[in-house]
Simulated scan of single mutants.
Amino acid sequence: MRRTKPLPATVQRWAEQRIGPVVAVRDASHDWYRSKVWELEGSGARRWYVKISPSVKFFTRETRAYRHIVPVLGHSRAPDLVDSRAEDLVLLLTAVPGAPAPGLALTTGEWRAVHRQAGVLCARLHEAGELDRSDRTEAEASLNVAAEGAEKYLARTGARLTADEQQVIRDHAAQLRRVGPVPVGYIHGDNQPRNWLVSSAGLALVDFERTRPAARVQDLVILAVTEWLDHPDREKAFFQGYRRDLTCAERHALRCLTALDAVNCLAWGPDNNHPEVTGRGRRTLDRLMRENRS
Protein backbone atom coordinates (compact mmCIF):
# COMPACT_ATOMS: atom_id res chain seq x y z
CA MET A 1 0.00 0.00 0.00
CA ARG A 2 1.30 3.46 -0.95
CA ARG A 3 2.06 5.69 2.00
CA THR A 4 0.28 9.05 2.09
CA LYS A 5 2.68 11.94 1.68
CA PRO A 6 2.09 14.92 3.98
CA LEU A 7 2.01 18.41 2.45
CA PRO A 8 4.91 20.43 3.94
CA ALA A 9 3.57 23.12 6.26
CA THR A 10 5.72 25.82 4.65
CA VAL A 11 4.24 25.00 1.23
CA GLN A 12 0.68 25.11 2.59
CA ARG A 13 1.30 28.50 4.18
CA TRP A 14 2.73 29.79 0.89
CA ALA A 15 -0.31 28.51 -1.02
CA GLU A 16 -2.75 30.03 1.49
CA GLN A 17 -1.13 33.43 1.00
CA ARG A 18 -2.31 33.20 -2.62
CA ILE A 19 -5.65 31.40 -2.45
CA GLY A 20 -6.87 31.89 1.11
CA PRO A 21 -7.51 29.33 3.87
CA VAL A 22 -7.27 25.66 2.97
CA VAL A 23 -9.88 23.47 4.64
CA ALA A 24 -8.79 20.05 3.32
CA VAL A 25 -5.70 18.46 1.75
CA ARG A 26 -5.58 15.21 -0.24
CA ASP A 27 -2.48 13.42 -1.46
CA ALA A 28 -2.88 13.12 -5.25
CA SER A 29 0.61 11.83 -6.09
CA HIS A 30 1.28 9.09 -8.61
CA ASP A 31 2.53 5.75 -7.28
CA TRP A 32 6.18 6.85 -7.50
CA TYR A 33 8.33 8.06 -4.66
CA ARG A 34 9.34 11.30 -6.46
CA SER A 35 5.75 12.25 -7.31
CA LYS A 36 4.49 14.93 -4.90
CA VAL A 37 1.08 16.39 -5.70
CA TRP A 38 -1.72 17.49 -3.37
CA GLU A 39 -5.28 18.61 -3.95
CA LEU A 40 -6.27 21.62 -1.86
CA GLU A 41 -9.85 22.51 -1.02
CA GLY A 42 -10.80 26.01 0.00
CA SER A 43 -14.05 27.64 1.01
CA GLY A 44 -17.00 26.98 -1.22
CA ALA A 45 -15.48 23.65 -2.34
CA ARG A 46 -13.00 25.47 -4.62
CA ARG A 47 -10.02 23.32 -5.53
CA TRP A 48 -6.38 23.78 -6.50
CA TYR A 49 -3.32 21.56 -6.82
CA VAL A 50 0.15 21.99 -5.38
CA LYS A 51 3.00 20.17 -7.02
CA ILE A 52 6.62 19.88 -5.90
CA SER A 53 8.73 19.09 -8.94
CA PRO A 54 11.19 16.19 -8.71
CA SER A 55 14.05 18.26 -10.18
CA VAL A 56 15.06 21.74 -11.27
CA LYS A 57 14.85 20.62 -14.91
CA PHE A 58 11.24 19.47 -14.55
CA PHE A 59 10.29 22.61 -12.59
CA THR A 60 11.80 24.83 -15.27
CA ARG A 61 10.08 22.96 -18.08
CA GLU A 62 6.70 22.95 -16.40
CA THR A 63 6.61 26.58 -15.34
CA ARG A 64 7.69 27.62 -18.83
CA ALA A 65 5.04 25.38 -20.37
CA TYR A 66 2.23 26.83 -18.26
CA ARG A 67 3.30 30.39 -19.00
CA HIS A 68 4.04 30.21 -22.71
CA ILE A 69 2.75 26.99 -24.31
CA VAL A 70 -0.21 25.45 -22.47
CA PRO A 71 -2.58 28.44 -23.01
CA VAL A 72 -2.94 27.44 -26.68
CA LEU A 73 -5.00 24.44 -25.54
CA GLY A 74 -7.88 26.72 -24.63
CA HIS A 75 -10.01 27.48 -21.59
CA SER A 76 -10.45 24.53 -19.18
CA ARG A 77 -8.30 22.24 -21.38
CA ALA A 78 -5.42 22.38 -18.87
CA PRO A 79 -4.74 23.87 -15.45
CA ASP A 80 -3.62 27.49 -15.09
CA LEU A 81 -0.49 28.40 -13.16
CA VAL A 82 -1.46 30.53 -10.16
CA ASP A 83 2.10 30.96 -8.89
CA SER A 84 5.40 29.15 -8.48
CA ARG A 85 8.36 29.30 -6.10
CA ALA A 86 11.70 28.24 -7.50
CA GLU A 87 13.47 27.72 -4.16
CA ASP A 88 11.00 24.97 -3.27
CA LEU A 89 10.36 23.78 -6.86
CA VAL A 90 6.66 24.24 -6.11
CA LEU A 91 3.78 25.12 -8.44
CA LEU A 92 0.25 26.17 -7.49
CA LEU A 93 -2.28 25.23 -10.16
CA THR A 94 -5.99 25.61 -10.73
CA ALA A 95 -8.08 22.44 -10.91
CA VAL A 96 -9.79 21.44 -14.14
CA PRO A 97 -12.90 19.25 -14.36
CA GLY A 98 -12.65 15.52 -14.86
CA ALA A 99 -11.00 12.31 -13.78
CA PRO A 100 -8.13 10.36 -15.36
CA ALA A 101 -9.38 8.23 -18.24
CA PRO A 102 -8.03 4.87 -16.95
CA GLY A 103 -10.16 5.04 -13.81
CA LEU A 104 -13.40 5.41 -15.72
CA ALA A 105 -15.52 2.57 -17.08
CA LEU A 106 -15.49 3.89 -20.63
CA THR A 107 -17.23 2.08 -23.45
CA THR A 108 -15.49 1.30 -26.73
CA GLY A 109 -17.10 4.32 -28.33
CA GLU A 110 -16.20 6.58 -25.41
CA TRP A 111 -12.57 5.52 -25.63
CA ARG A 112 -12.54 6.43 -29.31
CA ALA A 113 -14.03 9.83 -28.49
CA VAL A 114 -11.37 10.41 -25.82
CA HIS A 115 -8.57 9.57 -28.25
CA ARG A 116 -10.09 11.85 -30.88
CA GLN A 117 -10.14 14.74 -28.40
CA ALA A 118 -6.58 13.90 -27.35
CA GLY A 119 -5.53 14.16 -30.99
CA VAL A 120 -7.08 17.62 -31.20
CA LEU A 121 -5.29 18.86 -28.07
CA CYS A 122 -1.96 17.32 -29.06
CA ALA A 123 -2.14 19.02 -32.44
CA ARG A 124 -2.69 22.37 -30.71
CA LEU A 125 0.26 21.76 -28.41
CA HIS A 126 2.55 20.58 -31.20
CA GLU A 127 1.75 23.66 -33.25
CA ALA A 128 2.02 26.16 -30.38
CA GLY A 129 3.74 28.97 -32.24
CA GLU A 130 7.04 29.28 -34.03
CA LEU A 131 10.07 27.85 -32.26
CA ASP A 132 12.83 30.34 -31.55
CA ARG A 133 16.36 29.49 -32.63
CA SER A 134 17.33 27.76 -29.39
CA ASP A 135 14.14 25.68 -29.23
CA ARG A 136 14.41 24.70 -32.90
CA THR A 137 17.99 23.56 -32.39
CA GLU A 138 16.93 21.44 -29.41
CA ALA A 139 13.93 20.02 -31.27
CA GLU A 140 15.89 19.11 -34.39
CA ALA A 141 18.51 17.35 -32.28
CA SER A 142 15.97 15.42 -30.20
CA LEU A 143 16.03 12.16 -32.19
CA ASN A 144 19.83 12.02 -32.10
CA VAL A 145 19.74 12.70 -28.36
CA ALA A 146 17.26 9.83 -27.93
CA ALA A 147 19.49 7.53 -29.97
CA GLU A 148 22.55 8.45 -27.94
CA GLY A 149 20.73 7.45 -24.74
CA ALA A 150 20.48 3.83 -25.84
CA GLU A 151 23.91 2.84 -24.54
CA LYS A 152 23.22 4.37 -21.14
CA TYR A 153 20.07 2.30 -20.74
CA LEU A 154 21.72 -0.82 -22.13
CA ALA A 155 24.43 -0.49 -19.49
CA ARG A 156 21.78 -0.26 -16.77
CA THR A 157 19.88 -3.32 -17.98
CA GLY A 158 22.99 -5.52 -17.73
CA ALA A 159 22.13 -9.22 -18.00
CA ARG A 160 18.39 -8.55 -18.32
CA LEU A 161 18.79 -8.47 -22.10
CA THR A 162 20.36 -11.12 -24.32
CA ALA A 163 23.10 -10.25 -26.79
CA ASP A 164 20.58 -10.45 -29.64
CA GLU A 165 18.18 -8.13 -27.83
CA GLN A 166 20.95 -5.64 -27.18
CA GLN A 167 21.86 -5.68 -30.86
CA VAL A 168 18.26 -5.01 -31.89
CA ILE A 169 18.25 -1.94 -29.63
CA ARG A 170 21.53 -0.72 -31.12
CA ASP A 171 20.25 -1.31 -34.65
CA HIS A 172 17.16 0.81 -34.00
CA ALA A 173 19.25 3.55 -32.39
CA ALA A 174 21.46 3.62 -35.48
CA GLN A 175 18.42 3.78 -37.76
CA LEU A 176 16.96 6.65 -35.72
CA ARG A 177 20.06 8.73 -36.42
CA ARG A 178 19.43 8.33 -40.17
CA VAL A 179 15.71 9.11 -40.21
CA GLY A 180 16.17 12.63 -41.54
CA PRO A 181 13.97 15.70 -41.02
CA VAL A 182 10.62 15.26 -39.25
CA PRO A 183 8.09 17.85 -38.01
CA VAL A 184 9.10 19.46 -34.72
CA GLY A 185 7.26 21.47 -32.10
CA TYR A 186 6.38 21.42 -28.41
CA ILE A 187 5.46 18.01 -27.03
CA HIS A 188 3.67 17.04 -23.84
CA GLY A 189 6.35 14.45 -23.04
CA ASP A 190 4.16 12.06 -21.02
CA ASN A 191 1.21 11.78 -23.34
CA GLN A 192 -0.93 8.93 -22.06
CA PRO A 193 -4.44 8.44 -20.62
CA ARG A 194 -3.43 8.88 -16.98
CA ASN A 195 -2.73 12.53 -17.89
CA TRP A 196 -6.04 12.95 -19.74
CA LEU A 197 -8.93 14.17 -17.58
CA VAL A 198 -12.37 13.27 -18.90
CA SER A 199 -15.50 15.23 -18.03
CA SER A 200 -18.77 16.29 -19.61
CA ALA A 201 -16.98 19.52 -20.59
CA GLY A 202 -14.49 17.57 -22.70
CA LEU A 203 -10.88 16.47 -22.34
CA ALA A 204 -8.13 18.27 -20.42
CA LEU A 205 -4.39 17.57 -20.28
CA VAL A 206 -2.32 17.72 -17.09
CA ASP A 207 1.30 17.19 -15.98
CA PHE A 208 3.59 19.25 -18.22
CA GLU A 209 6.92 18.65 -16.48
CA ARG A 210 8.30 16.90 -19.59
CA THR A 211 7.01 19.47 -22.07
CA ARG A 212 9.82 20.57 -24.35
CA PRO A 213 10.74 21.28 -27.98
CA ALA A 214 11.24 17.96 -29.80
CA ALA A 215 10.22 15.86 -32.77
CA ARG A 216 6.43 15.73 -32.56
CA VAL A 217 6.38 11.96 -33.07
CA GLN A 218 8.08 11.49 -29.70
CA ASP A 219 4.74 12.34 -28.09
CA LEU A 220 3.17 9.21 -29.58
CA VAL A 221 5.55 6.52 -28.29
CA ILE A 222 3.71 5.53 -25.10
CA LEU A 223 0.39 5.41 -26.94
CA ALA A 224 1.91 3.27 -29.71
CA VAL A 225 3.21 0.61 -27.29
CA THR A 226 0.18 0.57 -25.00
CA GLU A 227 -3.20 1.89 -26.10
CA TRP A 228 -2.90 1.53 -29.84
CA LEU A 229 -1.24 -1.87 -29.92
CA ASP A 230 -4.44 -3.67 -28.91
CA HIS A 231 -6.90 -0.99 -30.03
CA PRO A 232 -6.16 0.26 -33.55
CA ASP A 233 -9.56 1.96 -33.56
CA ARG A 234 -8.24 4.32 -30.86
CA GLU A 235 -5.21 5.13 -32.99
CA LYS A 236 -7.46 5.90 -35.95
CA ALA A 237 -9.61 8.15 -33.78
CA PHE A 238 -6.56 10.00 -32.45
CA PHE A 239 -5.34 10.83 -35.93
CA GLN A 240 -8.81 11.96 -36.95
CA GLY A 241 -8.49 14.58 -34.20
CA TYR A 242 -4.84 15.24 -35.03
CA ARG A 243 -5.92 15.97 -38.61
CA ARG A 244 -2.89 14.59 -40.36
CA ASP A 245 -1.19 11.25 -40.84
CA LEU A 246 2.43 10.62 -39.94
CA THR A 247 5.02 10.98 -42.67
CA CYS A 248 7.04 7.93 -43.71
CA ALA A 249 10.02 9.34 -41.79
CA GLU A 250 7.88 9.78 -38.68
CA ARG A 251 6.55 6.22 -38.88
CA HIS A 252 10.08 4.86 -39.12
CA ALA A 253 11.18 7.12 -36.26
CA LEU A 254 8.23 5.91 -34.16
CA ARG A 255 9.26 2.28 -34.58
CA CYS A 256 12.84 3.11 -33.57
CA LEU A 257 11.63 5.14 -30.60
CA THR A 258 9.52 2.22 -29.35
CA ALA A 259 12.71 0.14 -29.19
CA LEU A 260 14.41 2.84 -27.13
CA ASP A 261 11.35 3.08 -24.91
CA ALA A 262 11.61 -0.67 -24.33
CA VAL A 263 15.19 -0.55 -23.11
CA ASN A 264 14.41 2.52 -21.00
CA CYS A 265 11.51 0.64 -19.36
CA LEU A 266 13.65 -2.46 -18.80
CA ALA A 267 16.29 -0.33 -17.10
CA TRP A 268 13.99 1.88 -15.03
CA GLY A 269 11.17 -0.54 -14.18
CA PRO A 270 13.11 -3.18 -12.24
CA ASP A 271 15.30 -0.57 -10.54
CA ASN A 272 12.19 1.22 -9.27
CA ASN A 273 10.09 -1.89 -8.52
CA HIS A 274 7.54 -0.92 -11.15
CA PRO A 275 6.14 -4.06 -12.83
CA GLU A 276 3.82 -2.14 -15.17
CA VAL A 277 6.70 -0.22 -16.75
CA THR A 278 8.86 -3.35 -16.85
CA GLY A 279 6.06 -5.28 -18.54
CA ARG A 280 5.62 -2.55 -21.12
CA GLY A 281 9.29 -2.74 -22.05
CA ARG A 282 9.36 -6.53 -22.20
CA ARG A 283 6.25 -6.71 -24.34
CA THR A 284 7.65 -4.21 -26.85
CA LEU A 285 11.04 -5.86 -27.05
CA ASP A 286 9.53 -9.33 -27.49
CA ARG A 287 7.40 -8.00 -30.34
CA LEU A 288 10.40 -6.37 -32.02
CA MET A 289 12.39 -9.60 -31.69
CA ARG A 290 9.61 -11.60 -33.32
CA GLU A 291 9.35 -9.10 -36.16
CA ASN A 292 13.11 -9.08 -36.58
CA ARG A 293 13.14 -12.88 -37.03
CA SER A 294 10.28 -12.97 -39.54
Rank of each mutant, 00 (worst) to 15 (best):
D27F: 08
R116H: 14
H274E: 15
V11G: 00
D171W: 09
P97V: 06
E276W: 15
T10V: 13
K36V: 02
E16R: 02
A267P: 05
G281E: 10
I222V: 13
E250D: 01
R136D: 10
L125G: 07
G109L: 09
P213K: 09
A45W: 09
E148F: 10
G241H: 03
S142I: 09
A214M: 02
L40H: 04
E165R: 10
R116E: 15
P71S: 01
T63H: 06
E127P: 00
R133H: 14
F59Y: 15
N292I: 03
R77V: 02
N144W: 13
L89I: 05
A139F: 09
Q166D: 12
L125D: 07
R47N: 03
H252A: 12
A150S: 14
P183Q: 06
S142T: 10
C122W: 00
A159Y: 00
D230S: 13
N264I: 01
L205E: 06
R283G: 08
E250V: 04
S29Q: 03
L161C: 03
R283A: 15
G269I: 04
E110T: 08
L266K: 01
G42R: 13
E235F: 01
A147I: 05
A159T: 09
A147Y: 01
T4S: 11
T284Y: 04
R243M: 11
R244N: 03
L223R: 05
S35Q: 10
R47I: 06
D286L: 11
R251C: 11
W48Y: 15
R210A: 11
P183N: 03
A173E: 07
I69N: 10
E151F: 07
P275T: 04
T157N: 02
R18G: 03
L125V: 11
R156P: 00
V179R: 06
H252F: 10
T211A: 12
S142E: 03
V184N: 05
R280T: 12
V114I: 12
E291V: 02
I187G: 03
V114S: 02
A249T: 07
Y66F: 14
L125A: 08
A201P: 00
A163Y: 00
A215L: 05
R290M: 12
R178M: 13
Y66S: 05
V221M: 02
K51F: 10
T108S: 12
A78V: 03
R64V: 03
P6M: 06
